Amino acid sequence: MRLLVINPNISESVTSLIDAEARRAASPGTVVTTRTASSGVAYIETRLESLLAAPAVAEIVAAEGGDADAVLVAAFGDPGMPGLKELVDVPVVGITEAALATASLLGVRFSIVAISERITAWYRDCVDRAGLTSRLASIRSLRDPLRGIGTVQEDFREDLVRLAHDVVEHDGADVVILAGAPLAGMAREVAHRLPVPVVDGISAGVAQVEALVRLAPGTARAGSCARPPAKDNAGLSPALAACLAAPHTTGADR
């Protein structure tokens, strides 16, 4: 199984965290290829920054996604989703939707622990888009400025664990999601310190896409995730233009 993992942030230090956790979570025989966005911001906190990241992610998906068995978009908030599902004929999954789906199977109500206060509004939008707002117990976040995006785990580990305890004790969470690629791998290191299941978006994403590939459910040839109709375009990269020029099929073509 060939898995393409994309960091929508431009931070190579975060890509290293993502790659390490993806490889730990992958099944034997899964080949993980990790890529970093060529444009955008160091880490995404807002809707605008997510919008800026989406074109860079789309470029990587267009260039390499067709050669993979699945694509994982590895930033909480899933920049470019769900539109990226229309681009290639393999499963394209974001770590937010993977984490939310996993948490929903582990408990009734879940909480999200985030790395900044500004990021929480965007995360609420993502939960709402997934139709899971009624199951969201809370979102709690760090309040102090980050010293480095690649060192958040080391700098704020105890604060993050405290927040995880708070959402269980005060907000009624059955499951805790440690949100964001900078926290990749932390869940497996602190799970023994928490009284409820802890979900990591990267490992959840790897497990979910592996399951989708094994299920072989077919591709979207109709519906809202089918490829867009062919039409004139301008200013696109050769890879994106080629994807958009691929034959458009409908249910009648089956």
Rank of each mutant, 00 (worst) to 15 (best):
S203P: 01
A63R: 15
L146I: 15
I95T: 06
R47E: 14
P145A: 15
V209N: 06
A42W: 02
G40L: 05
A230D: 05
A121V: 13
V113D: 03
R188D: 14
G235Y: 13
A25R: 06
G65Q: 11
G131C: 03
V92S: 04
V175L: 08
R193C: 01
V71C: 02
V5R: 09
R24V: 09
V93A: 07
P182D: 10
R140H: 08
V73Q: 02
I60G: 01
P238K: 10
L178W: 01
V198I: 12
T250I: 06
L146Q: 06
Y123E: 07
M1V: 12
E158P: 00
T102L: 04
T102H: 02
T133F: 00
L142R: 09
L244T: 05
T120A: 08
A241C: 01
I115K: 07
A98D: 01
A68C: 05
D171Q: 04
G180E: 11
V209C: 08
G131A: 09
R24L: 08
M81C: 07
S111K: 03
L240A: 07
V199Y: 07
G205V: 09
A184G: 05
A25M: 08
D19M: 03
P91Y: 14
G223H: 11
K85F: 00
G94K: 04
A184Q: 10
R143M: 04
P82N: 14
Q153W: 01
E158V: 08
V199A: 07
E21S: 03
A246E: 15
H192V: 04
D69P: 00
G251H: 15
S203Q: 05
V199R: 03
S237F: 11
A56V: 09
G205E: 09
I177F: 03
L48F: 15
S116E: 11
E12A: 14
D125F: 00
C126F: 00
G205N: 08
S27L: 14
I10Y: 08
R129P: 00
T30L: 08
V209K: 07
P228W: 14
I177H: 03
R23T: 10
A130Q: 10
A181V: 09
I119F: 05
A245D: 15
L136V: 06
T133G: 02
L194Q: 10
G131T: 05
V32F: 05
G40D: 06
T133W: 00
V213C: 02
R157W: 06
Y123I: 14
A181S: 14
D174T: 06
A103M: 04
Q153D: 10
S13Y: 06
A234K: 12
R118I: 13
T102V: 08
L100A: 07
L236S: 05
I6W: 06
L215E: 12
G148N: 15
M81W: 03
I202E: 02
P145G: 11
F156A: 11
P82T: 13
A164Q: 09
A222T: 15
S13F: 03
V190K: 09
L236F: 10
E154D: 12
D19F: 04
L244F: 09
E64V: 01
P91W: 13
C126G: 05
V5N: 04
T15E: 05
R162Q: 14
D174Y: 07
V31H: 12
M186N: 10
R118E: 13
R214M: 10
L105F: 00
R140M: 02
V61T: 04
R109K: 14
V61M: 02
D200R: 12
S104K: 04
S39D: 12
E210L: 09
E59Q: 13
A54I: 05
L4E: 07
P195E: 15
D171G: 02
